[in-house]
Computed example of a mutant assay.
Amino acid sequence: MKAVVHVGKLGFDGLTYRDMEMPQPKAGEVRIKLKTTGLNHRDLFVLNRHTPTEPPLIIGSDGAGIIDSIGEGVSNVQVGDEVMINPGLGWKETSDAPPPGFEIVGHPFHGTFAEYVVIPAENVIEKPQYLTWEEAGVLSLAALTAYRVLFTRGRIQPNMKVLIPGIGSGVATFLLQFAKAVGATVIVTSRSQDKCAKALELGADKAIDSNEDWNQALCGEKMDLVIECVGAATFNKSLDQLRTGGTIVTFGASAGDVMQLNLRQFFYGQFNLLGSTMGSAEEYKEMIKFIETHNIKPVIDSMYTLDQFSQAFHRMETATQLGKIGFTIS
């Protein structure tokens, strides 16, 4: 089968489109003939985590397709089922943090940028009929991350004021859609006027330029909840927008680590700082039910074929996308 494989070199130079052996499902596993798959920031990070001395690795975490083979003991699905993949391995019930041994499809195990993938049967779920294959294939990792951030960690409630700096990523667009679905007021930021305009079309109540004075732009209005994934470039500006006793949840640091934090401001403000990453299988099922109830679909930026992987990675690396980047697999 054809696949996007990382081997031999760190970073993007190690990526290649090549033949790999067809995987066979073992007991408790299923094989999926993939129709679509989604690109995530995690895939960029894996290029530097997977070392040149390790065996070739098929990367990619998201995917949707049709089950074409099942292993011994599998009874929850059957050949021909249309399914989506929950990329979180080994995290069943919702808990304060992932259990020991938790991993994500695509590293250290083979992922979804291929014609076929083998995963545990417990990690597949029926594809919602209202989603297209393109939508289903790019959804899982970003939507699950956004769901845990907002509901489990941030405990979002109707009428909350929510700030999402750096609108543009798949997770950020889900955060916007989910927060609006529960009746929150949502403010986003971006350096791009086009992204600000698109966010307003998606339901944002206000979109401000990341480079301007946020205090002035928000007229001193403070937030109940701030969702941070940018890091050094925005974290302290985000903190300035939080009301006394408010909560900031962080799940990423694409602009690097925060080197300075005003502790006096933090403890006098009675702020709550929470970390989050991915989510459990229980949260995944809750998220699917939530998007079905509210008819939420991923915002798709662009779709490529697997052999166009370099164009897709470049678009994500330069942060020019708004929403999800995906691959169609013939």
Rank of each mutant, 00 (worst) to 15 (best):
D213T: 01
G11L: 04
T36P: 02
G38Q: 01
F327P: 15
L15T: 03
K285Q: 13
V74Q: 08
C219H: 12
I227Y: 10
L200S: 06
L47K: 00
A64T: 07
N76G: 01
V83D: 00
L176D: 13
F266L: 13
R49H: 14
P128D: 01
I104K: 09
V162Y: 07
G326Y: 13
F313C: 01
H50D: 03
G246R: 12
I325S: 11
R153N: 05
G28H: 09
I329N: 09
E54I: 08
T16H: 07
A232Q: 12
I164S: 01
P55L: 12
A179K: 07
V188R: 06
G245L: 11
T328V: 02
S190V: 06
L144G: 06
T234I: 05
S238A: 04
N236C: 09
D209T: 05
G245K: 06
N272S: 15
G220C: 15
R18Q: 14
M287E: 05
F327H: 00
I227Q: 10
A281E: 11
A184E: 15
G106D: 07
R191G: 15
G245R: 03
N76P: 00
A184P: 14
A319Y: 11
S280T: 07
F267T: 08
K35L: 02
K33R: 13
G90M: 00
P165F: 12
R191A: 12
K127R: 11
A204M: 07
G252Q: 06
L176Q: 10
A184Y: 10
K195T: 01
D81R: 06
T37A: 14
L322I: 14
F309H: 06
R18P: 02
D307S: 09
L218R: 15
V149A: 15
P23D: 00
I32C: 03
R155D: 07
I119L: 11
W133A: 01
N123W: 06
D43E: 09
N40A: 04
G65H: 02
G8S: 06
A204I: 07
L47S: 10
T318R: 13
E126N: 09
M278H: 15
S140D: 09
W214S: 14
K198F: 12
G137M: 01
Y304M: 12
E126H: 04
Q308S: 04
I329R: 07
L322C: 07
L242Q: 14
P298D: 15
E21G: 00
S69P: 02
T132V: 02
L274P: 03
G279A: 13
G106N: 09
G183K: 11
K222N: 08
A114H: 02
Q193K: 13
N236A: 06
Q308W: 01
G275L: 02
F178R: 14
I119V: 15
G90I: 00
K9L: 10
G137E: 11
K9W: 01
Q193C: 01
Q265W: 10
S69T: 08
F174E: 08
E283C: 10
T277W: 07
T185V: 03
P100H: 14
D81F: 05
G252T: 05
E135D: 04
